[in-house]
């Protein structure tokens, strides 16, 4: 059944947005840590393109190689940061809050799409009876 694929896509994007939110929260928490470099995750389109194969964890003691989500936070390049303070910290609060706004917008869109798609699915099921 083809259309159900949208739910999978939506949940993957929600997961991506949540991981990005956690990354931004880590940056904001470390806004005054000397030498800390801001991190960010790859855009969602890049996540979609490479379907990362991760090692299966069959025992709790196994190392979590790809992270639970398969999305990892990397240090941002120097050119992407708005300012770097004398202590070597590259977190700009304005930039992080802007990114958080983007995440929030994407997440709102995502949940609303899921809601309306669910409504569509329900109405098509009901009209069948």
């Amino acid at each position: 059944m083809e259309p159900i694929h949208l739910f999978d896509l939506a949940s993957r994007q929600a997961r991506w947005a949540a991981v990005r939110q956690a990354t931004i929260a880590g940056n904001v928490a470390n806004a005054d840590t000397p030498g800390y470099q801001a991190r960010d995750i790859v855009p969602f389109s890049a996540v979609l393109q490479k379907t990362a194969l991760t090692l299966a964890r069959t025992e709790p003691g196994h190392l979590d190689v790809g992270g639970a989500s398969g999305i990892e936070a990397n240090r941002t390049s120097k050119a992407d940061n708005w300012d770097i303070t004398h202590s070597g910290n590259s977190v700009s609060l304005d930039q992080e809050l802007l990114k958080a706004g983007e995440v929030s917008r994407a997440y709102t869109l995502n949940t609303n799409i899921v809601r309306s798609f669910h409504k569509m699915l329900l109405s098509s099921v009901r009209s069948g009876t």
Binding site: A18, Q21, A25, V28, L97, S104, T111, R115
Partner: peptide, 27 residues
């Protein structure tokens, strides 16, 4: 910086409640 952290908590909470709201008022 305290305010920025507080803002992150507020926003994360609203994201969580958006997810929970998906379960509500369907139909």
């Amino acid at each position: 910086t305290y305010e920025a952290n507080l803002q992150m908590i507020k926003q994360t909470r609203s994201m969580v409640s958006m997810t929970i709201d998906l379960l509500r008022s369907q139909g």
